[in-house]
């Protein structure tokens, strides 16, 4: 019984972390048809920026509780600066090219960003451990969990609800759906497609950076921390159905629970549990669990 509780708790915490990263990835794919390999680098950028800013905040003698806001601000900063630079400065020259070519463009971008991060922050690790312990812990049976993990779960839920509300209830969201359905017709109807792309990529970047910023207090921020994350996020997004935010949420929960069950019950399976889930889901539902509502044009 306590194992089941632990599997659920650990699974949901992991799922929340996965969803934060995968949400931006699936959104960018849904709108722009770009499978962004550089997503992990944006996550890394978020983590480094958060580490630097929170460090400065605490050294400045500001109230420690404010560091949570600084984490969010770091993500926003990365999103608003890097997002537009990458989209306007690079990606817009590649629209209309084959999807595979776009993957390779972002792969090249990933290589460049990895070295740029190294040039700015060096290879030494950075630490912002304060926020992790700040809220204390809570006991769940024999196990103890930091309340910070609950905060990450709340953040993931908030992001999911905000995206859903933003897409379904706002004008901008409706324009977005129109562009997803038909890029050319939307443009003909007077929708500024390139603006929609700019906003989408900026939001996606901010989400990736938020994932990194919220992870930073729980780890050492080191070079290459985003590499492993990319392929995990891919798996989640593919399981859920490319381009679908609810799909990414379900994919994250599924992967989180299966991985956590593997760790508790069959640790040898942990290494490929995620890919097994992905292969099984695709074998049964070739396009993922939630096929995005729009018709793919053939």
């Amino acid at each position: 019984m306590s194992t089941l509780a632990a599997v659920l708790a650990d699974g949901m915490i992991y799922a929340a972390w996965l969803f934060l990263i995968a949400a931006g990835l699936t959104m960018i794919y849904g709108v722009m048809r770009i499978l962004n390999m550089a997503h992990g680098s944006l996550y890394t950028l978020g983590a480094y920026t958060a580490a630097s800013l929170v460090g400065a905040w605490l050294r400045g003698g500001h109230p420690p509780l404010g560091s949570f806001l600084v984490l969010g601000a770091a993500a926003l900063l990365v999103g608003l600066v890097v997002g537009p630079i990458v989209e306007r400065g690079l990606l817009r020259f590649t629209y209309g090219r084959d999807e595979v070519v776009l993957v390779l463009v972002t792969y090249a971008l990933f290589l460049i960003l990895e070295d740029l991060v190294k040039l700015v922050w060096g290879v030494e690790s950075y630490y912002v451990t304060e926020p992790y312990g700040l809220l204390g812990t809570v006991d769940l049976g024999p196990l103890t969990y930091p309340i910070y993990s609950g905060l990450v779960v709340l953040a993931a839920i908030a992001v999911g609800l905000a995206l859903r509300w933003g897409i379904e209830r706002t004008r901008a969201g409706k324009l977005l759906v129109a562009v997803i359905h038909d890029r050319e017709v939307s443009a003909a109807l007077g929708i500024d497609v390139s603006r929609v792309f700019l906003v989408t990529f900026t939001v996606g970047t901010t989400l990736a950076a938020l994932g990194g910023a919220l992870t930073a207090p729980t780890v050492a921020v080191v070079p290459g921390m985003g590499v492993e994350v990319i392929v995990l996020a891919f798996a989640v997004v593919v399981i859920g159905g490319l381009g679908s935010v609810p799909g990414a949420a379900l994919g994250a929960v599924l992967v989180g629970l299966v991985r956590s069950a593997a760790v508790h019950l069959l640790p040898q399976l942990e290494l490929f549990s995620i890919y097994l889930v992905m292969a099984l889901v695709l074998a049964v539902r070739p396009r993922g669990l939630f096929v995005a509502a729009e018709a793919r044009k053939i």
């Binding site: 632990a6 599997v7 992991y14 993990s149 991985r259 040898q268």
Partner: peptide, 24 residues
């Protein structure tokens, strides 16, 4: 009690730590 083998560079060890704690 348990031998956990997370992937190299995994970074997130929440479930592993629970599994270790559970075995005391």
């Amino acid at each position: 009690t348990t031998s956990q083998m997370p992937k190299l560079l995994a970074g997130q060890y929440g479930a592993e730590i629970s599994a270790i704690m559970a075995g005391r």
